[in-house]
Simulated assay, not measured.
Amino acid sequence: MTELPKKEQLYELIRANPFISQQDLATQLGLSRSAVANYIATLVRERRILGRAYVLPDQRPILCIGASNLDRKLRTAAKLVLGTSNPATQDESFGGVARNIAENLARLGAPTALITAVGNDASGRALLAHAEDAGIDTRGALRLDGVSSGTYTAVLDRDGEMVVALADMALNDKLSPAFLATRQQQRASAALVVADLNLPRDTISTLLDDAVRDGVPLVLVAVSEPKMVRLPHNLLGLRLLIVNEGELAVRVGRSLESDAAIGAACAEVQRQGVQDVIVTRGARGVMYTSPAGVMRLDAPAVDVVDVTGAGDAFAAAVCWSLHSGEADLGLACRRGLQLSAMTIECEQTVCPTLEPGHFDGLGTKLTESVLD
């Protein structure tokens, strides 16, 4: 068999590893760095790769940045009684907001990558192996020696509703602006960046600055009321912010007792620079900004099995719609509510039956109204 020309060999190496360095290419092909640079410039001109990240035009991923951790769920066998021991059952699974969103996206068939921090321990290795098996690119992950991977422990009542949750997420502070700088090529070549607020505040600021500079849409997903402090005041560059009612109240510094108050708070946050805001409201559905004003969308009725992961499923469906070029945020939210309901009705954090084509024909039967 005739050996491929050097340019085609180089192209195949890039296909196998889009983050390969020019020096590694030169070493493997027996070329000089300047020769490699010339071949890459030719491939860019031919539009066979896109820019410095060597990304193939049909493979620009949704890049999720944030937490991965081991989830522990404890469900009480009877009504929870505080201050004493309660009989319970336990199960473990893989979680973390960014990781959960990434797995939902990958199961939906979207090209997906994950930048996260894990310990170089059994849990960390299992987390990354599970993500890779789901089709998530984890080559950008930070692996740290001498530390434990993150954990999230949720206590659920016998009906599946969360009573309290405990999160050990300090590892995510290692996802600093300096570390993200080492993943600049990967971030700049993404089609969409989705980050959770487990990241440090200065890292969130960096992502906002880069969204303005690189033109890559950025979605931020809140994770809790205490971590809203990590959201910078200036939100210029932010395509979408997803929060719940309590998190929005923390952001604007006042209680939100009515739909009108929530609508006014969304408008206030928009004046801080974000293009759109989605407010999740549990069983009462969502509210979201639109050119016609703040809209309300009812949630479908569900049989609750386990609410863990429902918000992440909602965010994933919305991001899937944005990545697909969907300009209608209402349709994106309808898809989000459908996937959230599907997740609530199964025991797993990410529904294992989710697959590409899930949204074919869905998202058209939920009640929507404009806020007066």
Score class of each variant (00 low, 15 high):
K79Q: 13
R72F: 11
G66Q: 06
E92A: 13
V44L: 07
T42Y: 11
Y54Q: 15
L108A: 06
R99S: 09
N100Q: 07
S34W: 13
A16Y: 02
T116Y: 04
L74D: 03
K73E: 14
G109N: 07
A26F: 03
R52G: 07
Y54N: 15
I115V: 07
P111I: 05
R33L: 14
T116S: 08
Y11C: 08
P57L: 02
V81G: 07
A106K: 08
V97I: 15
A78E: 12
L56N: 10
Q23H: 15
A77Y: 07
R45N: 13
L10N: 01
S85L: 05
Q9S: 08
G30K: 10
L74H: 00
L25D: 05
Q90E: 15
A110D: 10
Q22I: 13
L70D: 03
E46Q: 15
I14Y: 04
R99T: 01
L13H: 11
S32T: 12
T76R: 01
E103N: 12
N38T: 15
Q22W: 00
L108Q: 07
A88Y: 11
V81R: 10
S85A: 10
I62N: 04
T27D: 15
C64Y: 08
C64I: 02
S68Q: 10
Y39A: 00
G95Q: 05
G30C: 06
V36W: 03
G83N: 09
S93Q: 15
N104F: 10
A37N: 13
A35K: 12
A77L: 13
R107F: 07
